[in-house]
């Protein structure tokens, strides 16, 4: 896996907390939302981190690889350009669709887990891979619904996707927790079914449970159950990297450092 052999522990870089990210001790890598960057005008903070040798991984949210429509070349081209500008070893997006029939959902929508939908997804992923300069990793999403007539479990769906496209996996343990609570899925079975040797890195994020529904807000503290799932994953494989995502309601530097320390603690305890 080359440079992904060991990414370490990182945090999602966001403009609001750029100085915090720069100052936090022991940040081994960061992730940026690719759509928010302009290749010609990369943020000073990102350039500074690159100068320090910190890997910066572009994370996309708009390729809509699960759409029945073909992938939009401009979006793939932008993602590739960002990856090249940052010297990133890989890029990522989600197993989802965000637009259909010319309309944007504004959310990451789950893909029906049917063989037909998988064929469409595989075709789009292969198109994207052919136009990207670096490997592509795909992330499991937190879904509030499941389409009917699914033929595969989420783990089986991802395993077959990896087998047919040779893509990497970006596993979000908070999304696993969300799906377990909201849809009744079994995270352990998911971990049993996916090819962990293709794991690029792991996402950890906070959320909140409201009226029996878990909301993957990225704006609250990481819950102990999510860290337990990270421990479960770590007991099966040593992930190249683990990244904390926080997108709003940013806590103090101390609290963010505490969450990163908690992640390191889990990784060490389950080694």
């Amino acid at each position: 896996m080359g440079v992904l052999d060991k990414l370490g522990v990182g945090i999602g870089w966001r403009p609001e907390i750029d100085l915090t990210v720069e100052r936090l001790p022991g940040v081994d890598f960061v992730e940026v939302v690719a759509e928010n960057l302009h290749v010609e005008h990369l943020p000073e903070s990102i350039l500074l981190l690159r100068e320090r040798g910190v890997p910066v991984l572009p994370h996309a949210v708009s390729l809509s690889l699960g759409s029945a429509d073909p992938v939009e070349p401009d979006r793939v081209e932008h993602l590739g350009a960002v990856a090249e500008a940052l010297g990133a070893p890989l890029v990522s997006d989600h197993v989802c669709f965000v637009r259909a029939g010319g309309l944007d959902s504004g959310h990451l929508m789950p893909v029906p887990r049917t063989r037909d939908a998988l064929d469409v997804l595989v075709a789009n992923v292969k198109t994207a891979q052919a136009n990207l300069p670096v490997p592509l990793a795909l992330e499991n999403i937190a879904a509030l619904l499941e389409w009917p007539d699914g033929e595969l479990t989420e783990g089986q769906f991802l395993a077959e996707l990896v087998e047919r496209t040779d893509c990497h996996l970006l596993i979000d343990v908070a999304n696993l927790h969300a799906n377990a609570l909201n849809l009744g899925t079994d995270p352990n079975r998911f971990l049993d079914e996916i090819p962990l040797e293709r794991l690029a890195y792991v996402h950890v994020a906070g959320g909140v449970e409201h009226n029996g529904v878990y909301h993957d807000t990225h704006a609250h503290a990481v819950r102990p159950e999510v860290l337990e799932l990270l421990g479960e994953l770590r007991s099966r494989v040593d992930p190249p990297g683990v990244l904390l995502e926080r997108d709003d309601n940013y806590p103090s530097d101390t609290e963010l450092a505490g969450e990163l320390a908690a992640i390191r603690g889990v990784l060490a305890r389950h080694a």
Partner: peptide, 18 residues
């Protein structure tokens, strides 16, 4: 006091716990 944070671009935002 750590109740506000400022970004490189000059965006000042309230710290969640403050």
């Amino acid at each position: 006091g750590g109740l506000l944070r400022i970004s490189r671009e000059g965006v000042v935002s309230a710290v969640a716990s403050g």
